[in-house]
């Protein structure tokens, strides 16, 4: 088990206040850490900062031991592919006017300069693993359900063989049974590929199933707790 991610002292301020302060934790490969908080607690922003889609005001992020800010520009795209993100709204996670086959093969086509059909064929085992049929990818995102889109998104993400996945409330817009499908699938793929995961959610029951450790975000601070403590904390908050 190697350490994939280490964040130290992450701060993000926005105008008058802090979105989050002094966030620090480590994450090993295959491990899942949860970021739990209510709407507006800053957990999504934290997730985007970890993946590099937003910049923190201060603090350091180490990916596989290297400080991400010191990575040379040429290596940055490749570094990006190792840290992927899955979003909350499946219907807008794909370019609405391109077929899924284009969207799903795009990253690999760009990075490896291969032909789209070759890339798509190489993704067949992954497509089967997520329980979709490759004919489905001829459709446009608007023609698919939320659950199918999230699964297609996993094909795209895992096509890049990431070491870390940040999941930002991936199932909060999905129905219960679809959520069960998608989350079970995520866990499965994560175990098979030994991927580390930062799982962001506001649903404590889902956190209890998906995560090994949980960071509770309240008022901008992140408190790390173990699963058992989290259970107690949730029952306490519920009363």
């Amino acid at each position: 088990m190697s350490q994939i991610l280490r964040v130290e002292g992450l701060y993000k301020t926005f105008g008058h206040g802090d979105i989050f302060r002094d966030v620090s934790f480590t994450l090993d490969s295959g491990e899942t850490i949860g970021l739990f908080g209510m709407s507006g607690s800053g957990k999504s922003t934290l997730g985007r900062c970890i993946v590099g889609l937003e910049r923190c005001t201060s603090g350091k992020i180490y990916f596989e031991g290297d400080d991400v800010s010191t990575v040379p520009k040429k290596m940055r795209p490749l570094l990006r592919t190792k840290m992927q993100m899955i979003f909350q709204h499946p219907e807008i996670s794909f370019d609405p006017r391109r077929r899924l086959i284009d969207s799903v093969t795009e990253p690999l086509v760009y990075h490896t300069k291969q032909d789209q059909q070759d890339v798509f064929r190489s993704l067949f085992p992954l497509i089967e693993a997520v329980g979709l049929h490759h004919q489905l990818f001829e459709k446009y995102p608007g023609q698919l359900s939320g659950g199918e889109l999230q699964r297609a998104m996993m094909v795209r993400i895992y096509s890049l063989s990431p070491k870390l996945i940040v999941a930002d409330e991936p199932t909060s817009m999905l129905d219960m049974s679809v959520q069960a499908q998608v989350l079970n699938l995520m866990k499965d793929l994560q175990q098979k590929n030994n991927t580390a995961c930062v799982f962001i959610s506001h649903d404590p029951e889902v956190m209890q199933i998906m995560c090994d450790r949980i960071g509770i975000i309240t008022d901008g601070t992140c408190t790390l707790v173990e699963k058992e403590e989290f259970d107690d904390w949730v029952s306490y908050m519920g009363s």
């Binding site: 049974s177 679809v178 959520q179 069960a180 499908q181 989350l183 079970n184 029951e205 889902v206």
Partner: peptide, 19 residues
């Protein structure tokens, strides 16, 4: 039965296939 079992507190068992 599938819907009830799919709840996280009941084990989050998925219903295979789709509607």
């Amino acid at each position: 039965k599938g819907l009830i079992s799919a709840l996280p507190r009941n084990g989050m068992k998925p219903i295979p296939g789709s509607c």
